[in-house]
Every structure is written in C-alpha cells, then in structure tokens.
C-alpha cells in the first residue's frame, strides 16, 4: 500500500512540473511578444487614446440623419454581395467537397487538389481576394461577389466534406445493392444524410458573409464599405456614425433571419 501511494505522488509531481514548465513558457512567450509590439508603439499616442476616442465620439454627434437615404443602395449592394457570393460558393463547394471527401473522391490526386483549394481559400480573407479582384475586374459589386465566394468555398467545402465522411456507410451500400447507378446512389443516400448540416453551414456562412461584405467596399469592391471609407477619409464623423448604426442593424437582422431560415429548413 505505501509503495503505491509513493508511486502515485511521483507521477503527480512529474505532471505538476510539466504544467509549471508549460505555463512558464507561455508567460515568457507573452512577455517576449509584448516587448516586440511595445517597441513598435508610439506610447504617447496610446496614452492619448482615451481622450482621442471620446473626442471622436463627440464629433459624431449630432448624427447626420438624412445621410441614411444615401445608404439604401450601398446596403442593398452589401446584401447582394453576401447572397450571390454565398450562392456561388455553395454551388462550387458541392463539387469541391465531393472531390475532397475520402469516401466519394474519384481519385487521390483530385482529393489532394481539392484539399489544396480548400486551404488556400480559407487562408486568404475576402478583403485580400477583393484587392486582387479589383485590380483585375475593376471596382464594383462583381469583384465583391467573387471575393466573398472565393473565401467561402473553402469554409463550406470543408464542413461539407467532413460531414460526407461521417455518413452511415450501410445506407449507401443498401442503395448500391439495388443496382442503382453511382449518381442515383449519391442522390438517394449521400445527399439526404448531409443535407441538414449542409443547410446549416450555408446559412451560417451567409450570416458571416454579411459582415464580411461590409468591408470589401474599402478597397473598391462595392457595398457600404465604400461609404465608410469616404466618411473616414473625409473626417465626416456624423456620417460615419450613421454607417456604423446601419452595419449594426444589418448584422443583427441577418442573425435573426438566418436563425429563422435554419429552423424552417432543418
């Protein structure tokens, strides 16, 4: 008995030592990173920050209410960018996910290619896609739509292919065993199984995309970001606060709307 006790304590000590080392490393890394950032910071500006912020807020009042009318079209464009971008991404991702899922992929090389597309799309934010696309296509809503869809393809495909990989194999076999073609098998056994999570993902992504499409305009790709850029560069703070309020209500609306849609469809 005492021997057992001793062993247990020893184990405990090693674990505690490891934990202390882990925390120490974490804290050291934090201090190290903090020093780098601190060295690159103009501290007087930061000290001044709170005052600047409150001045800024003061300058926003009174809000320029009539400016709201100028925002109707940009808001419409913002919703369009998010919606069409999401639809395009969904259509593309049906294909990409099918190639990327281990159990449906026709060939390992195609699978690797699909995985590469997914990680590339996921690593690069819509704003960066938008910068590239504005150079190529010129400014406008189209660049925004494509930027949003390029960013979303990876996200939707990843969640979709993961849920394809989790399907119940026997349901597929059962349809296969009736002599159904590959495509019919896909429609009758794979699609119904992944449908709920797919709808959930698509709606969720649309919700995120509303947020994303409020900024692609900053680089010229359409939507309310354009107005935001103008207001800030022109120091028109009473306009800016209207824009902020519009963004806030747009995002809240999209959250409610997507929750509702999800409830209906699933």
């Amino acid at each position: 008995m005492p021997k057992n006790d001793y062993n247990w304590q020893l184990k405990g000590r090693v674990r505690i030592l490891r934990e202390i080392l882990f925390w120490a490393a974490g804290i050291w890394l934090f201090i190290y990173c903090w020093n780098i950032i601190s060295a690159r910071t103009m501290w007087p500006f930061v000290y001044d920050g709170a005052e600047q912020a409150s001045k800024l807020l003061m300058r926003m009042f009174p809000p320029n209410w009539p400016y709201f009318l100028n925002l109707i079209r940009p808001i419409w464009d913002t919703i369009t960018i998010a919606t069409l971008g999401t639809i395009a991404a969904i259509l593309l991702s049906l294909f990409v996910a099918f190639l990327a899922a281990e159990n449906t992929s026709p060939h390992p090389i195609l699978r690797q290619l699909a995985l590469l597309i997914i990680v590339t799309s996921r690593s690069v934010s819509s704003l960066i896609w938008a910068i590239i696309l504005v150079i190529i296509l010129g400014p406008g809503v189209l660049a925004g739509i494509i930027a949003i869809s390029l960013r979303s393809v990876g996200f939707v495909s990843k969640l979709l292919y993961e849920s394809i990989e989790e399907i119940d194999k026997e349901q597929v076999e059962a349809v296969e065993a009736t002599g159904a073609s590959k495509f019919s098998t896909l429609i009758y056994s794979v699609v119904p199984q992944v449908f709920p999570s797919f709808v959930g993902t698509a709606v969720y992504r649309w919700d995120i995309n509303i947020r994303e499409s409020t900024v692609v305009g900053l680089v010229g790709a359409g939507g309310i970001g354009l107005q935001l850029n103008e207001a800030i560069l022109g120091l028109k703070w009473p306009d800016a606060i209207i824009i902020f309020m519009m963004i806030l209500s747009l995002v809240l609306f999209s959250e409610l709307f997507s929750a509702k849609i999800r409830k209906i469809l699933i």
Partner: peptide, 22 residues
C-alpha cells in the same frame, strides 16, 4: 453488368439500412 445483376438481388439488412431522412 454488375448493376444489372444487382437489380435481380434484393438485400435486407440487420440495421435496416434505410435512408433515414427519406
């Protein structure tokens, strides 16, 4: 040919293997 042959073989499973959401 296998597909055609499979049409002539019906299979019944232990865990039913129905497509649950259909």
């Amino acid at each position: 040919e296998l597909k055609e042959k499979r049409r002539k073989m019906g299979m019944i499973f232990q865990e039913y293997a129905l497509v649950e959401r259909l």
